[in-house]
């Protein structure tokens, strides 16, 4: 897991910039309009996101178009997945404990009849 990914996402404005790119390629002005901060701020955050691998940029004539890159999100998901697995195993035990109790109750009921 790259620590940089979390450091990059620690900034709330950068998370909003990422949100603005969720629907596809945008240019800086679109993002400025959507999140309502100054263009220099958006450009700075886009540069950081680009350097951290979250965002791709391509020229389109005089414009530069920004879009999300999937790799760091997959990496975050894989990292979280390890903790999901722990809970999968834990809930397997939860299910086993539940069954054991249900069987006990059934036995107790049949003993009582």
């Amino acid at each position: 897991m790259h620590i940089d990914a979390f450091q990059t996402l620690a900034d709330p404005t950068r998370r909003r910039v990422l949100d603005a790119l969720r629907l596809g390629e945008r240019q800086v002005n679109d993002v400025v309009e959507e999140i309502g901060i100054h263009q220099s701020g958006v450009s700075r955050h886009l540069r950081i996101l680009h350097e951290a691998g979250f965002v791709a940029v391509r020229p389109d004539g005089p414009r530069r178009l920004y879009s999300l890159k999937p790799e760091p999100f997959r990496e975050l998901d894989a990292w979280l997945g390890r903790y999901r697995q722990v809970w999968d195993a834990r809930l397997d035990r939860f299910g086993e404990a539940l069954e054991a109790r249900q069987q006990q109750c059934q036995c107790a009921r049949s003993d009582g009849t």
Partner: peptide, 10 residues
């Protein structure tokens, strides 16, 4: 009794 019967981890 319930909590102890399953809380892990392994």
């Amino acid at each position: 009794e319930g909590f102890e019967s399953w809380w892990g981890p392994e």
